[in-house]
Amino acid sequence: MKAAFLIASAVATLFAGAAALAASQEPIQPIAPAKVRNPAMVELGKKAVLRAAPVALRLHLVQLLSQPEHGRF
């Protein structure tokens, strides 16, 4: 039983290693999820960005409504 478990673990590790090796040999690599080091700073930055965003959003909507032929928004 123990031997079977060890073999299964070894095979799984081998496959995972092979997949990782294959990925590392490609010219494109996966993107890692964002690591948030300082959530409070991120939240503050979000507010600073969005403080100006309503103006931009309004401009965008007016542009959309005045040029409906664009049709791809």
């Binding site: 995972a16 997949a19 690599q29 993107i31 999820p33 700073m41 991120v42 939240e43 930055g45 960005v49």
Partner: peptide, 26 residues
């Protein structure tokens, strides 16, 4: 400080787990 905070927010705007990423991972 304002630009550092904005940059910290923008650093979180990444898009992982595309189908291609899943393919790359096996």
């Amino acid at each position: 400080n304002i630009t550092q905070a904005i940059a910290a927010f923008e650093e979180t705007l990444v898009t992982p787990n595309a189908r291609f990423d899943k393919w790359l991972k096996g």
